[in-house]
Amino acid sequence: LRQRHVACLARSERGLGFSIAGGKGSTPYRAGDAGIFVSRIAEGGAAHRAGTLQVGDRVLSINGVDVTEARHDHAVSLLTAASPTIALLLEREAGGP
C-alpha cells in the first residue's frame, strides 16, 4: 500500500536539507526503478525540522512539475530554483503492521 502526501518546505540559508537519488541519467536508487527518491535528510535542516520527509520517499512532483519520468539533473534544477518555498508530492510505502 502506498500513501501520498504533500510536503511544503521553506528554504533556509543552508538550503532544503535533503538529497535526492535516482532519475533518468543517474544511478537508480532502487534497482530497475528510474524514480527519484529522498536519499538523505540533513540533521537540523529544513526537511528535518518539517518532519514530513522520510528517506525512501518517492518524489512525484516538485512545485507542480511531474518528475516521475524526469532526469536527475532536471529534478535537481527544480529543487535549486530561486523559489523560497518548495512543494513536494511524495509517495511512501506504508509500512508497519
Rank of each mutant, 00 (worst) to 15 (best):
V6K: 15
G35T: 01
C8N: 15
H72C: 10
L90K: 02
A70Q: 05
F18D: 01
S26A: 12
A46D: 14
S83P: 09
G96C: 12
L53E: 00
D33L: 11
A10G: 11
A31V: 15
R40I: 09
S61P: 02
I36H: 03
L60G: 00
C8R: 14
L78G: 03
G64D: 10
V59T: 01
L16C: 10
G96K: 12
L89K: 10
V65N: 09
L60Y: 00
Q54S: 09
E91M: 04
R49H: 13
A42P: 08
S39I: 03
E43I: 09
G25H: 06
G95Q: 11
R71V: 06
P97Q: 15
G32A: 05
L1M: 15
T80P: 00
L60R: 03
G56R: 01
F37H: 04
N63Y: 03
G32M: 07
L89D: 09
D33H: 11
D73W: 05
H72Q: 12
A7N: 02
I86H: 06
L53V: 15
A10L: 11
G51H: 05
T52S: 13
A94V: 14
G51Q: 10
A47K: 05
T85W: 08
G32S: 09
D66Y: 04
R30M: 12
G25S: 05
A42W: 13
D33F: 09
V6P: 02
A31L: 14
R40D: 15
Q3H: 08
L88I: 13
D33A: 13
A21E: 13
G51I: 01
G44Q: 09
L1N: 11
R92Y: 00
G22F: 02
E91L: 03
S19A: 15
H5V: 15
V38M: 00
R71C: 11
V59I: 12
Y29L: 04
L78P: 02
Q54D: 05
T85D: 10
G96S: 12
A82S: 13
L9Q: 01
E93V: 09
S26G: 14
R4A: 05
V55A: 07
V6H: 08
L60D: 02
G23W: 02
D57Q: 02
V38T: 01
R92E: 03
A7S: 09
H48P: 08
R92K: 04
H74M: 14
V6L: 12
D57V: 00
A21K: 11
D33K: 11
V59K: 01
A87N: 14
A81D: 14
A42H: 13
S12G: 15
A46L: 09
A31D: 15
V55I: 11
A50F: 06
K24D: 06
G44D: 13
S39C: 10
V59H: 03
L78A: 04
I62V: 08
Y29W: 13
H5P: 01
T68F: 04
I41M: 05
A50G: 08
G22N: 01
L78M: 11
E69D: 13
R4F: 05
G32I: 02
L9N: 02
D33E: 15
A47N: 06
D66W: 05
H5W: 08
A10E: 13
V55L: 07
L16E: 03
R71K: 12
T80K: 15
D57R: 01
I20Q: 02
S83R: 12
A94T: 14
I86W: 02
I36K: 01
R92H: 03
E69Y: 10
G45C: 09
V67L: 06
Q54K: 14
A82E: 12
I62S: 01
T68D: 03
A87I: 12
V59L: 14
A34D: 15
L60V: 12
P84F: 05
L53H: 03
G56A: 04
I36G: 02
A70I: 07
T52L: 11
H48G: 08
S61Y: 08
I62Y: 02
L88P: 01
I41A: 00
K24Q: 07
D73L: 05
R2D: 05
A10S: 12
S26R: 06
F37C: 00
A10F: 11
I86A: 08
V55K: 05
I86P: 02
D73S: 10
A94P: 14
D73V: 06
I86S: 03
A34S: 15
E91P: 00
K24Y: 11
A42C: 10
I62K: 01
G56V: 00
A87P: 04
V38R: 01
D57M: 00
S83D: 14
R71A: 13
V67P: 00
S12W: 06
K24R: 10
A47E: 07
V55M: 05
A75V: 09
D33Y: 08
L60S: 02
Q54A: 13
I41S: 00
L9F: 15
L60I: 13
S12L: 08
V38N: 01
S61I: 05
N63C: 04
I20A: 02
I86Y: 15
I36A: 01
G35K: 01
G56M: 00
E93C: 08
G35R: 06
G56K: 00
E69K: 12
